[in-house]
Design a protein around this nucleic acid. Structure first.
Lengths: 199, 199, 199, 199
DNA sequence: GATGAATGAGTATTCATTCAT
DNA sequence: TATGAATGAATACTCATTCAT
């Protein structure tokens, strides 16, 4: 999987790497990409130099956080595709799970969207793979009549981000992503007319 | 209300103030709150000191931009309430108009949500007023059966931000906020069950 | 001459600029390019930001120092060419003057040679102009039989750097560049044979 | 005097030491003293800690490189003194040999001169010894009338550095140290007058 | 009032040195 | 002993804010 390290990292080094990544994930999520690296280092309990040993630049660290997120999503989509379930349930189940997981990662979603997203080639690949797999999941759900036909995978991706954005707004009141699920309702087939029929 | 200015600004001072505000609005929208003040000053064609004369801190400038946005929204909601139209049409018309206006201001919506939103008391007041007015608009639409009952004003606010977020994702393909309207469909009454019935 | 500033700098700004340049010249000469910018700022009595306002990068500051040096040399060569004097005297007089002037600037000569000399286009131009003018001075001296024929302008340039290098070695003992003049003797016509006859 | 090594180094340790020294010599020569120790370690194929085991500080490593250079020069001067040859030939032959050898080591000469040359006592001793031996070589050449009388050993040392400096300037064109030999011509006896007669 | 130069605290990054494995 | 990960001081550069002109 990971071919960047010729030989496995020493135990303590890997521990540090994980701690930095974990701390960075939280920090980026909570405070955006503007959080100082020194602060991340401090919270992770390591020196500033250690952060730079593992992630040569701040962007590299950010990208790694994004990458981990994408990998998790890819695993989730694969699981949803493998499960022998009704297509619509598989689709909305995936959305629901993502929303649930995205507890602390939510702001990350925004960060991904917001920033110029200086993603490297490897990250682009991962994203493309995810898009393709997700496309399959969507198509099956549409063919089963569980999702409206006038949206494509990119639309849904946008809606997902939107749902996360919405869900995040209600820190306390919104139990278990109710608002996110409300937004997902816009993906249901329209009884009578095309999109925007409500206007 | 505003007692910061004892006497009306000189004509040139007011012109400068307007130019700075306008430039800041665009800059914050396009590049986020991280844009340097010097850059805003340069684009507005004034010196850095002039920006600080009108807006003592960067936050103050940002907040003023937010405030103007809120004021515009308040005016729009009032107009929607005043018009003797069908309640659902008024409600969705307002959403559509907001979406359309938010062309370049979209990133601002996010900025507002994203940042710690260091809003002052005056801004809070404005927001509260807007919430109340908007609540009326929503209630009327719900009473007319045009909007599902299980959402409140805060939910809708979140959905609006979500719609803007979604709409922004599709730079080229999304003509005239189609995606935003798709998201708004989630506000329509559910034919059969409660929110989240799709899962 | 200087076309970088649209309008003349304010009096205090120009004063600061001059002080920074002067301080940098001494600092680079005495301690090489490794001297911290903060140190230069401190010695010049300005803040670090002020140095960066006038010279966006450290390299830019270094290059400006080099440029000033080149300009001075160019002026000197021009003067040597204009004077209606015996060609050999003009040539060696120029060398002697350069040596004398180069009191504190000597280490600079080395710095110029030593570093990768990240010189910009404008500096290259200046250097080319200097080379051409100096070539004329040399040619006249050679035609007058005052300088050996088997060296070209680039050789002499190298010898000059060498002479400065040599002269610098003897901090106390070497009065008025005696050692530099010794080195310059290698440029005199050889009585009998070609270069390297001494080996 | 040197009590750092109680017992002879283990074979592999000595091999490492030699590799580090050799790598450092090349690195300092090519890129100056600013080259990172990590880089030297990497090129030598050892860990950073190993460099520090053999040379406690970077300066210590640098000084050791200088010391080796001085030792080589001392051997060369001794050889020149021992050879029963004409004094002038011995002297200039030594200079020529040094120049030839100094192919890649040239930048080192400069590094030695340039840096504050933080040489320790042991290095000072070596340098003193070299100076004395070299003084003998010079004196014999002067007594034989092969070298001008108005220079002393320190002058010549400076001229040597100057020659190396000059020779380095002409990357391609200067075959086999021609320019260095030109500079050495300044050491020949002046036909008529004192040093600097050309001015 | 307007200008833009000066300030200086803050940030990412490098690197000599130390230390756990 | 060797390794290379960790440290943290140092350094170039940015930018909000202040102030002289």
């Amino acid at each position: 999987m990971s071919d960047r390290q010729q030989r496995p990292l020493r135990a303590d080094a890997r521990r540090n790497r994980e701690r930095i990544l974990h701390t960075a994930r939280d920090a980026f999520a909570a405070e955006g990409i503007a959080v100082p690296l020194d602060e991340i280092a401090r919270r992770a309990g390591v020196g500033a130099g250690t952060v730079h040993r593992h992630f040569p630049t701040k962007e590299a660290l950010f990208e790694e956080v994004v990458r981990e997120h994408l990998e998790q999503l890819t695993r989730d989509v694969r699981a949803a595709l493998d499960v022998e379930a009704e297509a619509g349930a598989a689709f909305f189940g995936f959305l629901a799970r993502m929303t649930a997981e995205a507890d602390a990662k939510q702001d990350l979603a925004e960060a991904i969207t917001a920033a110029g997203s200086p993603v490297g080639a490897r990250t682009e690949e991962l994203a493309a793979e995810l898009r393709e797999l997700f496309g399959s999941l969507l198509l099956r759900a549409q063919q089963a009549g569980a999702v409206r036909d006038d949206v494509d995978a990119a639309d849904v991706q946008a809606v997902v981000v939107a749902a996360l954005t919405a869900g995040r707004r209600r820190d306390a009141g919104d139990r278990s992503g109710r608002l996110a699920r409300v937004v997902f309702d816009c993906l249901l087939p329209r009884p009578s007319g095309p999109a925007g029929s409500g206007a």
